[in-house]
């Protein structure tokens, strides 16, 4: 059976690359800026590249915050990517204090500019980094990450800010940057989101998107 994936277009970029990645995997992809179409999705994806405030403003200005809330409540699979993950949290500190959608408790904070040993490090965190299983989980079994090609997949990150979930149980994957444990993915039931870019993470990332299509 063909897997149907609906991508929410809220006026920011990067939708096409996410769409292309799902298409290559054989999904029936629909990119929509229509609230009713998004609400009826079998699988809804909210990508994101850009600044937090602009993204949230676009989403709220189009009434999509309520669409996302209602959709998530249906129990159908939801995937947020990058800023599409950050938006799910209570608030962000990027360019001032801004409220998010509040679907997951926690804040979006700057990636630390110093390592845990006090040495300066690069921000944004750009490049390939390994995912690790957070302390509160035993494995990725049964999650969409289970489908990637090895145990410690390397995926592509580009971000200056990262979500800090209040609940350890919401963390699905972490990465280590300068000794800091950054939240790389979250999952609460059908609500899933990743800070990295699976659509830019070659085979490993495509494997994860395939995993999402099979949910």
């Amino acid at each position: 059976m063909t897997s149907k994936v609906t991508i929410l277009d809220y006026g920011m970029c990067n939708l096409l690359n996410v769409a292309r990645a799902f298409q290559v995997l054989g999904a029936d992809v629909l990119v929509t800026d229509d609230a009713a179409t998004a609400a009826a999705a079998e699988r809804l994806v909210v990508p994101g590249v850009g600044a937090f405030k602009d993204s949230v403003d676009e989403v709220q200005g189009r009434g999509f915050d309520q669409v996302i809330r209602d959709y998530v409540a249906t129990g159908r699979p939801f995937l947020g990517i990058c800023v599409g993950m950050q938006m799910l949290f209570d608030a962000s500190e990027e360019f001032g204090e801004h409220r998010g959608l509040g679907l997951l408790p926690g804040r979006v904070r700057g990636v630390p500019a110093l390592t845990t040993e006090g040495a300066p490090q690069r921000v944004p965190h750009i490049g390939w980094n390994h995912l690790v299983v957070p302390e509160a989980r035993r494995s990725w079994e049964g999650t969409f990450l289970d489908n990637c090609v090895d145990e410690s997949p390397s995926v592509y990150f580009v971000h200056s800010f990262a979500a800090v979930p209040e609940l350890e149980s919401d963390r699905l994957a972490d990465c280590i940057y300068g000794g800091h444990r950054l939240c790389a993915a979250v999952q609460r039931d059908n609500l899933m989101a990743v800070q990295f870019h699976p659509e830019r993470s070659a085979r490993q990332g495509l494997g994860m998107l395939q995993g999402f299509m099979q949910l």
Binding site: C13, V49, A51, D54, P124, S160
Partner: peptide, 8 residues
């Protein structure tokens, strides 16, 4: 940077 993020 403001529109698309510094990373872009």
């Amino acid at each position: 940077a403001r529109r698309f993020g510094s990373q872009a």
